[in-house]
Design a protein around this nucleic acid. Structure first.
Lengths: 197, 197
DNA sequence: AATCACCTTCCTAACGGTCGTTAGGTAACA
DNA sequence: TGTTACCTAACGACCGTTAGGAAGGTGATT
């Protein structure tokens, strides 16, 4: 079992890295929030880099897990409802936007010296989401026969792009702006993906 | 006329802020690149905050100008070509991804203490893009009569969301990943926006 | 059962370094 | 004469990191 303080350090540093970025986050502040002194961090992690990398690994694994959980738990629902509901579900898990914020920030603006390590973690992460969604669309379309094209991979990528765009909006501009954008985008995207009636 | 070094400082700091963020950028390095000593920056700007804010103002104004220039220069083309071609045009202006990177970074992850100032600049910026695009869609649809819905505002927002998502991909993952995403997304979005044939 | 070495987890103190910023001066120019 | 654009020197603050040690638990040896 992993030590309690180590776990607290991971959680707290995710908050700080999400809020201030790698360069802006302070080990001093992280330690204080956990209730230990700054040098004690080094009993659990090799240094700031190590903390950041382990936070990244944890965050990606957690996010992937939640993603998969949602889409398997909505297996019964119609495809549109499942895809559309994902956004609402995402909002309802409040803590998520911090995890998402950390992930977005680490993905788009990693510390220069850790760029390679970030890429090595993010590419498989994104690919696995893409694969999961591609399989989902294919399986569902076999019974529902509702999608316009059988290029499920492209459809999955389109969905991910839109999801990313709107969820970024959520992280940055809050729930209201997010709803506005989602209501504008989703009907268009769904109409583009599905057979018109 | 604004002083030469002041202009150089603005350009160079945009590069550095884009690459390392507000906290990660160093006045030392910026000054050296421009060819002056660090304290000489204070002859032109009040400090790091001032430099960052003026860089933001400049970047947004420049980006808005380019955006407007493109869409007025493609007035003759069919709407789809104009919308679709925007992405290719964007790539062809190589220097842009630095400006775009700076803007994305400043928008999504502003330094905490300047959050309000950033919001005050970005909201009008985004609104003006949204308005410009909404008007464009409305005007074009009057002659082409090709759009599925007359809710031009929503269509414009959908387009901006997708543009943001794919251009973010360009900034982060490079041209190839961008093309892959664009080819997946655009047919779906356009099919969703336009009258099906 | 008592002792021992060992490891982990925390501490205080302090390191060298960089940060943004200010003071104060010089030289050029209006 | 005053202003602008630069300089050198130096400020205090904070950065991540290391050294070295105290306290406590673990597990093997006597």
């Amino acid at each position: 079992m992993i030590h309690l303080k180590a776990q607290q350090l991971l959680q707290t540093s995710i908050h700080h890295f999400a809020a201030h970025g790698y360069e802006g986050a302070s080990l001093q502040e992280i330690a204080t929030e956990v209730g230990i002194k700054k040098p004690s961090i080094y009993a659990h992690y090799k240094g700031k880099d190590d903390l950041f990398l382990q936070a990244t690994t944890y965050a990606l694994q957690e996010q992937k897990r939640r993603f998969a959980t949602y889409f398997t738990s909505t297996r019964q629902q119609p495809l549109e409802q499942s895809l559309h509901g994902f956004f609402d579900w995402f909002i309802s898990e409040q803590q998520d936007d911090i995890l998402m914020r950390f992930i977005l920030r680490a993905a788009y603006f990693p510390p220069e010296k850790l760029e390679q390590e970030m890429t090595d973690r993010f590419n498989p992460f994104f690919d696995s989401l893409h694969d999961l969604l591609t399989r989902l669309l294919r399986e569902r379309d076999r019974t529902e026969k509702i999608l316009y094209s059988t290029d499920y991979k492209s459809a999955a990528l389109a969905y991910l792009t839109v999801a990313e765009g709107t969820l970024t909006e959520l992280v940055y501009n809050g729930v209201d702006a997010f709803h506005a954008r989602q209501q504008a985008v989703w009907p268009i995207v769904w109409r583009g993906m599905s057979k018109t009636i």
